[in-house]
Amino acid sequence: MRIVVDGVGASYGAKEVLRDISFALNPGEVVGLVGPNGHGKTTLMKRMLNLIPGTGETTFDGKPYRLLTRPQLAVGSLLSAEGFHPGRSAMNHLRMIGAASGISRRSAEFALDRVGLSEYATKSPASYSMGMKQRLALAAALMTEPQVLILDEPINGLDVDGVYWFRNTIRSLAGESKTILLSTHILSELEKLADRVLVLHGGDLRADCPMEELKTTTSGPAVTIAVDRPREFAARLRAEDGLIVTFNGESLVIDGMTARDVGTLANKLGFTLFELSTTLRTLEDGYNDIVGRGVHESQCRGSGGKP
């Protein structure tokens, strides 16, 4: 199922929290949504699912969410792990959610089993740990075997086994051509999961990039070098080549050159090399370039699938 988000905006009172967000999600894609707290990730998901009013529109294979017949069968979502009545058991909670989509008790049982909560099916989620509540919310999202998953911080509270299970489940679902959008603050985990990343900042879509491009969108891999006179070498690089050079202990970290070029240059200038290595950039580096260092427009914006 293809999702097109077109010019979506939202406000809370006078405060505009989302501005003209547009992107598309394609079947089989796992797309990460990242951004600081309070910068519109959850609001964007709620707006996509028609839970709050606003401008623009999101369509699921051409239809807005509100016009989908039994929408849960097409779109599974997790927006909060806390939505349950303390007097209702986990099994009945799933039965209630599934009732509007004709989901059987057996499907609810299967979903609980899938997330490892069968033993606790008759207990109230109020007695659950945070990770168990998160698993229950995931069970609700997965229960209908939907074509699309929209998950807001699904890894929060999961233990190591849970994260491993979640990662495998998501990759396996992507292999079945499901469309998956998930937000998280755990960038190292997202790096293992997502094919593409959307960066929201201040209500604007700052970047929409394939994962590998986002990591290197503002600079290439950094080179770490240890030489006999590091301060002198750093000064030469800054003065003659205008490179960004930072110190990491006695080593230098250089942006904008390959290891081969740095090694050749050090040799040419008569410095003795003790260490030379390339540090691959992470999603965190790319994210920090866009959000932390205020790079306002990523070069790859839209290349991942602008509608």
Partner: peptide, 10 residues
């Protein structure tokens, strides 16, 4: 109890 959101999703 926050289940209205689930109802509206369904």
């Amino acid at each position: 109890y926050g289940t209205l959101c689930l109802a509206l999703l369904a």
